[in-house]
Design a protein around this nucleic acid. Structure first.
Length: 289
DNA sequence: CACTTGACCTGTCCGC
DNA sequence: TGCGGACAGGTCAAGT
């Protein structure tokens, strides 16, 4: 769920809401969600001020004045939600969007100055928050192997094709979901991009013509940009930093559209199949093996 | 090494 | 209505 556009939307929200706040206190209910020693929390988090919010792939980074950062992966059901007296008062309409916090999915609660709070909620406990020195972020395993940012202007379609073709015997869907090939694409945008490029998701990479791969790159970039514009996709759990849902899903052409007509072939219904172990949505007419 | 599958979790939905 | 099982999808570990 939280893929590149969703994490980017959270980043932009936090940039406005969180930068400048000082952390007063931290509590968590699940060691798995926040595995740091409390001694580190006391020394490098409590009393520190938020200086910047960054994103790489689907990973969010909250930089602190202590030269440490909160590194966050939302995985499937993670949420980062800010609640501040300056933005939401009691009875504010946004309260109804996500309910009262903390709730039973709240894993970490950050108390901030000026009465504000930051919540890390995660129903399924796959996500995590880690406090690490800012300078060491590039050395964590994920950062060392993650591929280029799709929206980086220096990432050329030639390189995209080269990186994809390293996985020549796997399916094209598995290849674009592989974070070492390129960063940030998950199940929703994989399906949307493959429909846009008219490629069947189960096609082996080696069997996809280069002009189609080039088209796929263009489509993925277009879709990711459009989704950021729409505030991301809310399928089930995702909300932005203010607890609000995204609207991209209403623009989706195939994702969760099974049984509805294809936009290019009104007589053909979108079908749901399984590729690379994931629910996959296709138009059987424009995406053939 | 390349590739696939299962595990991690919990809530929801579907069929009986 | 209750209950079991399938499903949701990001990443890593373990398996082929």
């Amino acid at each position: 769920m939280p893929e590149l556009p969703e994490v980017e939307t959270v980043r932009r929200g936090l940039l406005t809401l969180l930068v400048g706040h000082t952390v007063k206190k931290v509590t968590h209910d699940t060691p798995k969600s926040f595995p740091n020693a409390m001694a580190d929390v006391e020394q490098f988090l409590v009393g520190a001020t938020v200086t910047d919010i960054r994103r790489r792939a689907k990973v969010l980074m909250i930089d602190l004045s202590s030269q440490y950062s909160l590194v966050i992966h939302l995985k499937m059901t993670g949420q980062i939600v800010y609640r501040g007296e300056l933005v939401f008062g009691a009875g504010h309409p946004n309260d109804s969007l996500i309910g009262t916090l903390p709730d039973r999915s709240t894993r970490v609660e950050f108390e901030l100055d000026r009465g504000a709070k930051l919540f890390f909620n995660d129903q399924r406990k796959f996500g995590w928050v880690r406090l690490i020195p800012t300078i060491e972020i590039p050395n964590i395993d994920f950062m060392k192997k993650v591929g280029p940012e799709p929206l980086d202007v220096n990432f050329t379609d030639k390189e995209f094709i080269q990186r994809l073709q390293r996985r020549k015997n796997t399916t094209i869907k598995a290849a674009i979901l592989d974070q070492t090939v390129l960063a940030g694409v998950g199940n929703i945008y994989a399906d949307e991009g493959l429909w846009g490029a008219k490629i069947h998701p189960a096609t082996r990479v080696k069997d996809v013509a280069e002009n189609k791969l080039k088209k796929l790159f263009t489509e993925l970039r277009y879709i990711l940009e459009l989704s950021i514009e729409k505030g991301g996709s809310t399928d089930r759990n995702y909300v932005n930093a203010e607890g609000k849902k995204g609207s991209y899903i209403s623009f989706a052409r195939v994702f969760r559209k099974e049984g509805t007509p294809c936009q290019r072939h009104p007589d053909t219904l979108i079908k749901k199949i399984k590729v690379a172990g994931r629910g996959t949505h296709i138009c059987p007419e424009c995406q053939k093996l």
